[in-house]
């Protein structure tokens, strides 16, 4: 399968996107009413798909360790909860996180490639990637060079992704398109095609540093691009919306969209992630409410 990739695609042949139609489709997903058992299943699935994230200039080993504790002990009052999928940190925190999570089956994801802007040389980006992997990162979240993409230098962007993929070795590569800077859905689609062809294991919407971050609209376009790739090759690329998904209701809308676009086989943390920090507690509050029937207060849920 993989040999089919690594060829610069002709982006002129990518299907165009009609924004109004996308908005209408998204509105339809949001009218799905998810109740009872299927809500319970969905909430647990959401938890298991979360990349618990801290990407601040003020991050310290102490902060990262606390976040890892949260990842391990989401809410011990509720038995049978899954853990989150990964903890996502800056490269210099990878070692700390790796140690804190050792033995719990939670991946360490590291942003890399001069996150969030990507405004550095290729050598430095590759070096940073290799270092993060060497420190124990299981997953690398790279950013594409948006400036180059907007300037039409698709080959440059393509080669950069392919090179980072190579630098990742065994680590999974998530390619952040930073859709908020691509602005149009047509460009999101083209960038998705480019990233997939260049070797992305996952494509990801946003850094979280630019508004708008993830929207259902851009996520739908990216899911549809993943679907086209699957139809053509049988290969499954993962998807990660990141930033701005903070309520369980919205997360469930995303799951509905995922299910109705890519079907059952994508309903797994292996192929879908939420990049989020406050989402987990909202999901936990919903699960607790399902367990005891009471509306919850945030005071009863740990904030790390």
């Amino acid at each position: 399968m993989a040999q089919k990739r690594k060829r610069l695609p002709n982006l002129d042949r990518v299907n165009p996107v009609d924004e109004t139609g996308v908005n209408e489709r998204v509105a339809r997903f949001c009218t799905r009413s998810i109740k009872n058992d299927s809500k319970h299943t969905a909430l647990k699935l959401v938890l298991s798909m979360i990349d618990l994230t801290t990407l601040e200039g003020q991050d310290t080993p102490g902060k990262v360790k606390q976040l890892c504790q949260k990842a391990i002990h989401l809410h011990d009052n509720l038995p049978g909860l899954p853990t989150v999928a990964a903890v996502c940190v800056y490269p210099n925190m990878v070692g700390i996180a790796k140690q804190a999570l050792m033995g719990y089956g939670i991946n360490v994801a590291s942003v890399a490639t001069a996150f969030p802007s990507g405004m550095s040389s290729r050598d430095i980006k590759l070096e940073e990637t290799r270092n993060a992997v060497a420190d124990g990162a299981d997953e690398i979240d790279m950013v594409i060079s948006r400036g180059a993409f907007l300037a039409g230098e698709y080959a440059y962007v393509f080669d950069e992704i392919a090179a980072v993929k190579e630098a990742c070795g065994k680590a999974h590569l998530k390619v952040i398109l930073e859709t908020g800077e691509l602005v149009t859905l047509d460009r999101v689609k083209k960038a998705s095609v480019l990233a997939i062809q260049a070797g992305a294991d996952f494509i990801k919407t946003s850094t979280g540093k630019i508004q708008p971050a993830a929207t259902m609209q851009v996520t739908l376009i990216m899911l549809q691009t993943i679907r086209e790739h699957y139809y053509a090759t049988g290969e499954k690329v993962g998807m990660k919306p990141a930033g701005g998904i903070s309520t369980s209701k919205l997360a469930i809308h995303y799951l509905v969209m995922l299910r109705e676009t890519l079907g059952d086989e994508w309903m797994t943390p292996d192929l879908f992630r939420f990049g989020a920090s406050s989402l987990a507690n909202d999901v936990l509050m919903q699960l607790q409410r399902q367990a005891d029937g009471l509306y919850q207060s945030p005071d009863y849920f740990s904030k790390d």
Binding site: N36, L45, R259, D264
Partner: peptide, 10 residues
Amino acid sequence: LKFDTGWQYA
């Protein structure tokens, strides 16, 4: 794709 094996809406 598969649509009938996994999560369904109650």
